[in-house]
Design a protein around this nucleic acid. Sequence first.
DNA 1: TAGTGGTCTAGACCACATT
DNA 2: ATGTGGTCTAGACCACTAC
Lengths: 249, 249
Amino acid sequence: MTGAKFENKLSTPGLAFQPLYKQVEEHVTQLIVEQRWKPGEMLPNEFELAREFGVSQGTVRKALNALTDNKVLTRRQGVGTFVSEHTGHQALYRFFPVVEDGNSPELPRAEIVSLTRTEANERVARNLGLTVGEQVILLARKRFLNDIVCLLEDIYLPEKFFPGLVEEPVIPHTLYHFYQINFNLTVHKTTDRIKAILADASDANELGIKEGDPVLMFTRLTESLDGKIIEYRINRCRSDNYHYLVDFD
Amino acid sequence: MTGAKFENKLSTPGLAFQPLYKQVEEHVTQLIVEQRWKPGEMLPNEFELAREFGVSQGTVRKALNALTDNKVLTRRQGVGTFVSEHTGHQALYRFFPVVEDGNSPELPRAEIVSLTRTEANERVARNLGLTVGEQVILLARKRFLNDIVCLLEDIYLPEKFFPGLVEEPVIPHTLYHFYQINFNLTVHKTTDRIKAILADASDANELGIKEGDPVLMFTRLTESLDGKIIEYRINRCRSDNYHYLVDFD
DNA sequence: TAGTGGTCTAGACCACATT
DNA sequence: ATGTGGTCTAGACCACTAC
């Protein structure tokens, strides 16, 4: 199907013809970005959406299932189709790769160290796709597993995507859910780059290790559902009793 | 569908009812493990498979597409459906996460340092699911990016899964393809656990860095298509100019 | 009981690659 | 021209959940 064959009600943008189900996928994503349905809310059923978009129910199903694979939607048999919310154990584990040696993955506790506004230096600007000097928010946190500090985070956020965040009185532990609810920014994917470094005096002190001890350092770039780079993190992780877990399949 | 409703020709194992398309998926996987079709070979078309299994073409399609998502099969429009081979750029990048800083992912060269038979010590046995003292093969390699050594690998293989490997006169660089072709072991997924350590004298010498420099160490467990753990790797990677790249989505 | 998603089928037609 | 996978549709029925 080239996009012109059927009379459907999707906004087909000009010449880049896509299969109908792909158009439905993008259209539904767009509607979520525009907050027609908010996180946690239920979508109309397949037949209603099919009627609205002018396609068959099977085509809607294919699109909704693809979005479910991408974790954008959650479907529950007998209940309905929902916009995924970054809450619940599964969603929280999804982007936290640090595990205590010999243990199963667990959820960490977070403690805010500081929250300030500053100007992007060259490195931050390059990573966030900003120009040097643009306003960014720097959020520093410590994270704990079993009440032992395991990770230090410096989180840089473009202020234009997070207006007013720096004045927020209280920032919850579940940051990605907070982005989603308060700034309509749903985290969609992340890229981590991992290196080994030696602890400097300050990090060693905060992590409870010695200066010069090996530390796992990973930087993260986070992309939202609508394709914006919304976060740049610099993480330093104790490596004596923790590791970074990756599955390829 | 509970598995008993339709008269199909799949070996439904007793009571663990599965959807038909899931049964087809497992059956096709089993046939690949049994080498009814070898890597690179083409399967019969959807209608033929549907007739053979006693299900509809749409059900076969759903199963084959799922296996394609899992990289077990490769489908090409107008051509056919093929058993995936661990060759070709895409398949080779898939399990190699080390990238030179500031560069795009590239394929490394491999050089064999030694190939010996030994007995599994406690650590190796535990990771490979063997008993201490079982025969294992130890393959040590160096890997190069742009002709600079970046990674040292100690690869432990249970001899029972790789009979005769230790006498092989020549081992190719593309190990996972070699496992697949010569031992009918298709790598399906891997788990890496990453830590930061300090280089010991030997590793530092081989990697061209100084003793005590930070090094990225990651261990890998590799699982085959039929669910066996076939490989345990201990990797040490230069961290001065290289990093480990992970995407979550 | 009503409403939802999940499975399975059948068939028409399109797009692509090879001969 | 032929054969393959890809898309789209239509409809029947099942399984699960909530009320």
